[in-house]
Every structure is written in structure tokens, then in C-alpha cells.
Amino acid sequence: MIDIALSAKQLNVHYGEKHAVHDVSLDFAEKEVTALIGPSGCGKSTFLRSLNRMNDLIPSCRVTGDIWLKDQNINGSDTDVVALRKNIGMVWQRPNPFHKSIYENIAFGPRYHGVKNKKQLDEIVEQSLRKAAIWEETKDRLHKSALALSGGQQQRLCIARTIAVKPDVILMDEPASALDPISTSKIEELISELKQDYSIVIVTHNMHQAARVSDKTAFFLNGHVVEYDKTETIFTNPTNQRTNDYITGRFG
């Protein structure tokens, strides 16, 4: 039996009057990549942002329902959100490295979480950069500004920054959509690598990408999950007509 890393139960999200996510219940398996696909505005990114309580930052946004990370309810009112977010990392559509050096971008998280030893920090920085396949490009300029890196490098740096704090789950919100094709394929390779250690939930616009990198796929439409199954099944033999219409490109 597969372990469940993260599990949403009857999740609803409202933006003011707008009901953006309807009664979504999804289980995300451990050490697997789950893709969330669907047309723009279908609620997939909103749903993703609820998983690490990022929607708390938006005053008009209200999230109800339960999200279980192992035995802890993420969406509980007394949940320690700060401690929680350490276990659930996030990567955004546009690379957003801190306005700091490459080294500081990686070391910032672990240092805050208690790693004070310089040697240990150096090690974490190197390991994280290696895992994110960007060590070779950055090892000679660790103390230069991260903003000088190219877009693709910045995005891998952001992934390295995320794994430096050793989360259980990594959320990715269209992580390659702002990048060129070569950078995109590097990110996709990286996702397949990271699967060995992390559970990954990825929102993507690109159905080929979903098909390439994910084990399971959920199809969102108008805030509902229309279908959730093995990626292979979704793309070759969907049960729902609307899923079929979407993946064959009739809308979206």
C-alpha cells in the first residue's frame, strides 16, 4: 500500500463572493508526482496555494475543509503555520530568488531553522545546489548576487532553496512556464530526480509536461475535480467526456 503524504478533504475556497474551489478531496501519494491540470481560472493554483496556507496572505480569501499532512491538520485554526510551512516547500511560476547572494539564498532557511555551524551550512548549500543540478554553474560565484543568474538558473536555485530546509512535500505552481525550452527540460529532469526523496504536487498548463513528469493527474474545471487517476489513464483512457475534450484540445 502506498503511503499518503498529503490529503485534502472537502476543501472549499472562497475569494470574497467567488467560490473558487468546490469540495475538492484529493490524496497525494508519498514520493510521487501529482499533476493538477485544467484551463486558466479553474482553481488549480488556488487549491495549490491552500496546501501551505499561502492563501492566508489574501485578506478576502476563506478556506474551509481539512488538509492532512500525516496526522496534522494543516487547515486547523490553531495550526502553527510557520512550523507547518517548513514541511511543505513551494516553487512559483516566476523565479523569485531573494535579493541576496546565491549562498545566502540557500543558507537563509536552514540557518533560521537552527543550523548555525558554518561547515554544516556550507555542506547543506553544496548538497542542495547539487540536487537542484546547479552546483557546477554556481560554485565559483556563491557570494555573487542571485539576481545575476539566468531565469532557468534562478528557478533551479529556488528549488535548491526549497529542498535546503528538507520539506516532505514540494508544491510547484507552473514552475517552467516562464522559461525557455532548454531550461524547461532541465526542470522536468530535476522533478523526476527529486521524486526519489520528495512528494511533489505540480500545477501545469502544459499537458505534455503533465504526461512526462507525473504519476497521477487531477483534472480541474470550474473549481471542481472532474477526474483524478493515474496519469496514463487520464491521458489515454479518461472516463469523463470533459476530460477527454480538454486533453484532446477542444477547449482550454
Binding site: V82, K86, N87, K166
Partner: peptide, 18 residues
């Protein structure tokens, strides 16, 4: 459940937030 111990980190950040 190997990480459940890790997760119970001390919470100095609560004092800091305060």
C-alpha cells in the same frame, strides 16, 4: 512516519512573532 520527530521542532518563532 520517520519524520514525525523532526516535525516537533521547538517553537522559538512563536515568541519571535510576538
Amino acid at each position: 512516519m520517520k519524520k514525525s520527530n523532526d516535525r516537533e521542532v521547538a517553537t522559538p518563532h512563536l515568541a519571535e512573532e510576538w
